[in-house]
Simulated assay, not measured.
Amino acid sequence: MPDKDAGTPRVFLIRHGETEWTKSGQYTGRSDIPLTKDGEQQVISSAGVMVGTGKIIDPSRITQLFISPRKRALRTYELLFSESIRHSFEGKVEITEDIREWDYGLYEGILPSQAKAGRKERGLDKERPWNIWTDGCEEGENPAEIKNRLDRVIAKIREIQGPYMHGEKPVDVVLIAHGQILRAFARRWLGFEVGVKLPMMLEPGAVGVLSYEHHNVEEPAFMLGVNMADKGL
C-alpha cells in the first residue's frame, strides 16, 4: 500500500548533545556551556544512523536550517554534518535567537526543586503549584514571549514548505536547539498553546520529526514514527 503522505516536507527537531548541566538537571538557558565528550559522541552516533544520502535526514533534501546561537547547538551542527555538507548549506543556515533556549531568569543554573523552594520562600504559588509552561520564570520569559518567537519561525517554515506539499521540490527543514524550547516548538507546530499539558521527551542528541497530514500545510502533524530506511520520497 503506498504511503499517502510520501513526499510531504518534514521538519527535524534536533536537540544538542549532553552538557554537564543536562546531566545534573540544572536549568540551562542563556548560559553558554559546551558539550561533554559523551555529548559529542551522542551527536556523532545520531549522525551515523540518521544523516546521509538515502537516510532520514538527507542533506540533498534540506532547504533551510535554523540554529540556536548557543555554542552547544552550534557544536552539534558541526558534529552532525561533515564539513563538505556544511559547505553545501551555504546560504541556507539561519542562526537565530528565536530558537534559543527558554530564558530561565532567576532559575538559571539551579534545579527545578530549588526553583520551587525559592518561589515558596518568596510567598508565591499559594493557590497552586508553579508550572513553567503556564507561569514562566521570574525575571525570565513567559509563555507568551516563547509563543511569539516560535511562531515567527513556524511562519517562515510554512512559507518555505507550503508550495511543495506533494514533493515537487525537496524542502525539508532542520532545527538545532534545546530540550525545552523544542518541546514548546512542537506544541506550537500542532496549534496548541505553550502551556497545554502535552508531555514529551527529547533526549540529548536525539531527533524528532514534524510534518503535515494529507499534503496540507494547514494540517501540521507530529510524526510518531519513521522508517529508518525512509528516503522521504
Rank of each mutant, 00 (worst) to 15 (best):
I176F: 11
E40A: 14
Q42A: 01
D5Q: 05
T53L: 15
I146M: 06
S60N: 14
E90A: 14
Q64I: 01
A47I: 01
Q161P: 02
L175S: 05
K23I: 15
M1S: 14
H87W: 11
H87M: 10
R72C: 12
R10I: 03
R119G: 00
G136S: 05
K120L: 12
L233V: 13
K55L: 01
K55R: 14
P163M: 04
G91S: 03
R183L: 08
A206H: 13
A155P: 04
G167W: 06
I181S: 07
H214G: 10
W133D: 11
T22Y: 02
M201C: 00
A221P: 04
W102R: 03
I181C: 05
A6C: 09
R70M: 15
F222K: 06
D151R: 09
K126D: 14
P59A: 08
E203P: 01
E145C: 04
E219S: 11
G162Q: 06
W189I: 05
G136I: 00
D38I: 13
G52Q: 03
G105P: 02
Q42R: 06
S211T: 10
D58M: 03
M1K: 12
T36E: 01
E127L: 13
D32F: 00
L111G: 03
V171F: 04
S211Q: 07
D58P: 15
N216H: 10
G109R: 03
W21Y: 10
K23C: 12
E83H: 12
E203A: 14
D230C: 15
R122T: 04
D3G: 14
G225M: 15
M165R: 05
I62W: 11
R188A: 02
K147F: 08
R188C: 00
S68A: 10
E213T: 11
Y27L: 13
T36D: 00
V174E: 11
E83Y: 12
I99H: 08
R86S: 07
F89Q: 06
D125V: 11
E145S: 03
M165N: 08
P204H: 05
G54V: 09
K197G: 03
Q114R: 13
I62Q: 09
T134Q: 08
F222I: 07
E218A: 10
E168W: 12
V194H: 07
E168H: 11
T53Q: 13
R128D: 01
S88G: 13
R158K: 13
G17C: 01
C137S: 10
V11M: 04
L124C: 11
R10W: 07
V51C: 07
E18P: 05
I57C: 03
Q114F: 00
A73Q: 08
I99K: 12
P34V: 04
E101K: 01
D135N: 07
H87F: 12
E20L: 14
L190H: 02
R61V: 00
Q42H: 08
G109I: 02
A144F: 05
R152H: 09
E203R: 07
D58G: 03
A73L: 10
R187A: 09
I14A: 04
